Amino acid sequence: MECLKQVNPDEWENIPPLAELYQDLPTTLRCSPHKNNTDFRRKSPKQIAQNAYIGYNTPKVTTFIVIDLDYDGSIFAYHDTGIPRPQFVLKNPKNGHCQYLYRLKDPVTFFKSSRNTPIRLLNAVTDALNDVLGGDKAFTGYLAKNALNSAHEVYYTGAEPYTLGEIASYLDLPDLNSSQAEQAHNDEFYGRNDAIFNTVRKIAISIAYTGTYTQIYAQCLEWCEEYNTRYSPQLPYNELKSISKSIAGYYTSDKFRREFSELQAVRGARGGKVSKRKPAPTSEASTEPWKAMGISRATYYNRKKQGKI
C-alpha cells in the first residue's frame, strides 16, 4: 500500500509515468466527456482535457488490461488479494469505485497473422483478474476512466509493465489446452461472434441492394471492427473477416437479389395504386368551400371540428 501515490492528472505532461501513458494511447482516440456517447478524435492535449473517458486499446492491439471494480474500497483490492499491482488506479471520488490499468510489456495483436496463443492467454488472464478482484465481467473497456483527466482521482503504483506470463504466475488459470477450457472459450467466443454478426447484418441491409461484393465486404469489416472494440477480449481479426464475407456473400447472392426485387415490386404496387373512386360532385372535396370563405383548407376543417361551421 505504501507504493500507492496520488498524482495530479492536470499536470500529466510534467509527471513521467503519465506522460508515458499519453504516448502509449492510440493516435486516433476513442473518447467522450460522458459515458453515453463516443467520439473519435486525433490524440492531443486538448482532447485529453475535454474528455473524462477514453479507449486505451485499438480494435487490433490490446496494450492495457482494464479491470472495472464497482464497489467502495476497491482501491486496495490488489493488495488484499495478493496479486500484482496495476500501474494506475483510477478512483471515482463520489463512490469509491475504481478501475485498474495493467500495462502489457508485449501488446497482444488481433491481426490476420496474429498467433492464437497470446489471445487465449489474454482472455484467461483478464477473466482470472476479474474473478480474484471481483471485477465487472460485463465491462468491455470500450470507454474507461481517463487517467489524464481530473474528473477522477489518479494513483500511480510504480509498477513496471508486465508480460502476460508474469501476471499469470499470480493467478489460478485453467489449463488452456484442456477440453473444459476450450468449451468455456467457445461459449464466450460464439456469443460475441453471433452478436457482431447479427448487429452488422441488420445495418448492412442499407447497402445490400446497391453495393458490390467488395464494397459490402469492406464496409461490413469496418463495422465489425468498430463493434468488436466493445468486447474484452475481442474476437480475432480472422473471425471479423469471416463474418464480413458471410454477410457480403449472402447480400450479393442471386437468391437475395431476386427476393429483394420481388419485395420492392410488391411495395411499389401498393404505393402506386390509384383509387378508382372519384369524389362526388357535391362533396366538400369537389366544392372546396374554404376558398369561398377566404380561409385555408386546414382552417376550414379545424373550425368544422370545433363546431364553428
Rank of each mutant, 00 (worst) to 15 (best):
I203T: 08
T28F: 12
T140K: 12
T126I: 13
Y190F: 14
I243G: 01
F139Y: 14
F197Y: 15
C3W: 07
K308P: 02
N186Q: 15
A52W: 04
I65M: 00
R303V: 01
L122P: 02
P84R: 05
P281R: 00
V125I: 11
A138I: 05
Q99R: 03
K304F: 05
T287W: 04
L101N: 00
Y78N: 02
K112H: 13
Y237E: 15
G135H: 01
R85G: 04
E2M: 15
K137W: 06
I216V: 13
P9W: 07
R277C: 02
Y170K: 09
P281Q: 06
W223K: 14
P93V: 09
Q306Y: 09
T28G: 02
L90D: 01
S261M: 13
P84I: 12
H97Q: 10
R201K: 15
N238Q: 12
K273F: 10
V200C: 07
S253M: 09
W12R: 04
L21P: 03
Q47K: 13
E2C: 09
Q215Y: 09
I295W: 05
E13W: 08
P59H: 05
A52H: 10
R85D: 05
Q23L: 12
L240F: 13
S244R: 06
F260L: 09
G271H: 12
P161V: 02
C224H: 06
K91N: 08
D172S: 15
R230I: 12
T58Q: 10
P281E: 00
A19Y: 09
L121R: 05
G294F: 14
L176H: 06
H79M: 11
T212Q: 14
S275Y: 02
Y213S: 07
V89Q: 00
Y71M: 06
Y155R: 07
R257H: 11
I65F: 00
V274D: 03
I203Y: 13
T62D: 10
G307C: 13
L25C: 07
D68H: 01
E160R: 11
T229E: 05
A184V: 13
I309S: 10
K94N: 06
H185D: 09
S206T: 15
W290S: 01
T287Y: 10
R267M: 10
S74T: 11
N36W: 13
T109C: 11
V125A: 05
S179G: 04
Q23T: 11
R257F: 11
Y142R: 13
L21W: 01
A218T: 13
A151R: 10
